[in-house]
Design a protein around this nucleic acid. Structure first.
Lengths: 244, 244
DNA sequence: TGGCATTACTCTACACCGTATACAAGCATT
DNA sequence: AATGCTTGTATACGGTGTAGAGTAATGCCA
């Protein structure tokens, strides 16, 4: 059987993941991986077509830890479980996670992660033609937020912001000066993520119950409104991941 | 004057940009850039401390083309101009743009792009403590969408989706099967982007006019930084929804 | 049992990468 | 005319991904 093959494959990926987390993504070289598994660099090419292929495997490995809630919970909870779970994975593998945004992912693993999201949106009453788009919006937010958070894109603190604001005059950065010291408050990322989720869930709810906001104009088809109402504020902790 | 220096600097960045767009980001090597400007690789280090520094310059160069609308327009239009402008830049430099998400950007250029967004959100009546967070949500969507679009993260077509759906049984991807051929429809990215923007603008409008949606219920603490209501400068302007 | 193909792996080599270090020419100022 | 700064070159080092050929062990089949 190719079973032993699969084992070696995942062993290689595991070493890559360890390397990435311990020494950063740039340290993930074929040579380093090879010595990690006790082989020659070229031996890896028996299991992966190229380094890119191997990195795809790494993406899949990380993606596999994103929870995939079954239809037991309400659609709100399911979306929350996915989102929070993905962010937790980002925190678990902070140096590897940014790979997800870098690579064009049409991996089977990715599809398996997306499916529960589709399901939840459908159950929220979102019309079929809008499901894919709304899912992209949702996962773009979750991924973008998590990646920005762990990769420091948001700025590693607020000091940078303050310094820049003071360096440039109010004429160049008027809004920064209007905001003033509010920008220097420490950011509660957990809270901000939850707030963003809340806003997105609201958007989903609206898309699922006929839409029709005060600003949406244009012709639309009536949606199959079965928007359920669920206890949204549950904080269902979702720490369900395999112990490596 | 350091003027001639600045000229050489931007000439170097320009060559890097051309290389990146013509042959892809991996082709942007110090050696290639150097021959592009007619110099030795090491000469570049007189203008940039390292390759990373040079790439930051490249990011700034791209960022500089994102429009920065003045306060003449209404806040809605301003947000739309920024968002659409950023996406246009992504389409103009599809192979370079993904750099923006890769690098931790606290560049002066980035701050200059963010400032109009802050201004627009303030004018929308968003309370000061929520401005930064809402801006991050907004720009995360715009950047994430644009990058995903040009880098093919969304899947370069729908064929992949279809094949995968058929490969895996309905038990493994139930929602995909529930959606059926809707997933195979060609995607109108322009329309989807506009739709996402519309939804976000709606969220902004709500945050700016008291918040409190139909689903944010529950006996919970006032979620995070939402201490006061409409504090700053309520509703400076209100404008009609723009033509898409 | 001998021959043979397959598998799993190693060795060597190539072209390329970022950049540290040392050196050379041109120019301004004293 | 001598000085020192700016600007650029030359060379070299240790790294990268991977192509190509070679090798040892294994299992199959006559």
């Amino acid at each position: 059987m190719g079973n032993v093959r699969q084992e070696r494959r995942s062993e290689i990926v595991e070493v890559a993941l360890r390397l990435s987390e311990e020494h950063g993504l740039p340290a993930v070289s074929m040579r380093a991986i090879a010595t990690g598994v006790g082989l020659t660099p070229m031996a890896l090419y028996g299991y992966f077509r190229s380094k890119d292929d191997l990195l795809d495997g790494l993406v899949g490995r990380v993606l596999a830890e994103v929870p995939r809630p079954g239809p037991a919970l309400g659609w709100r909870e399911r979306l929350l479980v996915c989102a929070r779970g993905a962010r937790e994975v980002a925190h678990r593998y902070p140096r590897t996670f940014p790979l997800l945004l870098t690579r064009p992912v049409v991996l089977p693993e990715a599809v398996r992660v997306v499916d529960p999201l589709y399901g939840a949106l459908l159950d929220a009453g979102v019309p079929g033609e809008q499901v894919a788009g709304l899912e992209r919006m949702f996962s773009t937010f979750v991924l973008g937020f998590a990646v920005s958070e762990v990769s420091g894109r948001f700025g590693e603190g607020n000091l940078g912001t303050r310094q820049r604001r003071e360096r440039a005059g109010p004429r160049e950065l008027p809004a920064h000066h209007r905001l003033g010291e509010v920008l220097d408050l420490p950011v509660d990322w957990d809270a901000e993520f939850e707030k963003g989720l809340e806003r997105l869930l609201e958007t989903v709810g609206r898309a699922g119950s006929g839409e029709r906001g005060p600003f949406t104009d244009g012709p639309d088809e009536p949606a199959v409104g079965e928007g359920e109402r669920g206890g949204t504020r549950g904080r269902t902790d979702s720490d369900a991941s395999p112990p490596a």
